[in-house]
Every structure is written in C-alpha cells, then in structure tokens.
Amino acid sequence: MLYVELLAQGLVQGSIYALVAVGLTLVYGLLRILHVAHAGLFTLGGYIGVLVTNATGSLFLALIVSMMVVGVLGMAIYRLCYQPILDKPPYVALIASIGLFIAMEEIYRIVFGPYGISYQNPPLQSSVEILGLSLRMGEVAVGGGTLVLIGALALFSTKTRFGTVWRATVTDPDMAESFGVDIIKVRYLNFFIGSALAAVAGVMVALLNNLVEPTMGSVPSYKALAIIVLGGLGDVRGTLLAALALGVIEAFGTIYLGNYLDRDAIAFAFLILVLMVRPQGLFGRA
C-alpha cells in the first residue's frame, strides 16, 4: 500500500512539474531561450487564484481568470523582454530572464506582502477513497486537471491544422516560415499556452499548501530546468514523462534516502546520473 501511496503522491507532484515545465520546453524549442521568469508567472498564477477565490468564492472562476491574465502577461514578456534581444547571443536573454524573475519576486513581496496569502475557506480539502487510497480532493483535482489540460493540448497539437503547424514551428522555425507560417503569431500562442498552464500549476500548489508566497517559484524554476533537460530540450512528450518520473523518484527517494539527502538534492542527483548515461536526456535522440 505504501508503494501505491508514494506513487500517487509522486504523480501529483509530477503533474505540477509537468504543467510548469511544458511552457518552458515550448519556449526553449521555439526560441532557444531558457525562460527562467516562467516560474515567476507560476507564482503570479497562485496569487491570482487565491485572490479571486477569496473575492468570489469560486475556484473555477479563479482558475480561468488566472490562466487568462498570466497567459497575456506571458505574451507581454515575450514582446517586451525577449523579442528585442532575439538576435543577441542566448545568454543575453538568459540574464534578462533571471533579472526579470528576481524583479517579479520583489514586486510580489511589495504588492502582496512578504508573508504570503492563503485561501479564507480553502476549497477541496475533504478526503476521498480511490482504490483504497485516501486522497485529498485537492490532489485528485491536480491529477485530474493536469490530465484534462495535457489531453486537450495533445488533441489540439495533433488533430488541428494549426496545432500541427505549431509543432513543426517548435522543431524548425525557419523551415516553418518557408511554408508561410507567421512565426511571431506562433510565438505569442506558445507563450500564452505555456504561461496559462504554469498559472494552473500555481493555483494548484496554492491549493495543496494553502499558501502563496513571493518565493514560491524558486524551487520550481530550477527544477523545471532540470526536467526539460531530462526530457530532451524542446521535446514536449519527453518533458511530460520526465516531470512525472521526477515526481515519483522524489516521492520514493524521500522515504528511502530522506535521511541523507533532501528532496531537491535527490532530484538533482537523479538529473546528474541520467545525464552521465544519456547526455541527450531520457528520451532525446542521440
């Protein structure tokens, strides 16, 4: 039973990593930029989620508002922060992104206060029994929500014409442009979807911890970087699998290695081990 429980916990944590990391890998695929500030959007998603829920009492509405606002802000970051420096070497964008991330954390501290905010009436706190496991509704919502969103993304990107073109553009923007694709449009869409998914992750983490604080994005920011490397940079399917794998490894690792290494150390030990054997990532092509 312990194994199943650990597996379930790992998958829930992995779902959250997945929602954050997908946006990151999409941006990397398209622009070859490590979009560190992405984790700042994740945090903002959490704030908006809590604020709107507290104001209206509707978690669902909060989720939608959070996705929209953060999605649009993601597009604005592309337009204002990255587009002007795309012709510079990649480290320029990386530094800009790190700077933006730090600035975002400070802004949250100033605007929302240093101690974080919580739900007044935390939603989805009751427990349910599923297959003999006792899970919080929040955890079920995280897993189920991720499944629905990623499923929708998969359908959009494989079954629609624009989705197909989007995937093509992520693997080879120049060639896609050769077939008439307006790659700027694709970039906006890309930032919108990636950021909106990160916002969902933020709302969900806020739900599980009942806390949103200014630095909530720090750990996910570097962990998501590890995940997209594991998944083979720019590879969405690989990133999803790597996120789930990392969640599960962490869950088991903290039980069996918890006395020696903390959760994050386990994650990075795993990353280093994998990269020693497969430098192209878990699922990348050689």
Binding site: T164, V165, T171, A176, G180
Partner: peptide, 22 residues
C-alpha cells in the same frame, strides 16, 4: 533544402499539412 530539413517528429501526412499551410 539541403539536408531535407523535414519536421522529424511529424508524420508524412503532417509534414505535407505544414507544406500546404497557406
């Protein structure tokens, strides 16, 4: 182009879809 530069993860059908995008 040189080296073909197909979209490697896309199927034959999907590569043609991108070709006919316009």
């Amino acid at each position: 182009p040189e080296g073909r530069r197909l979209f490697p993860d896309l199927t034959i059908e999907e590569n043609l879809t991108v070709g006919g995008y316009c």
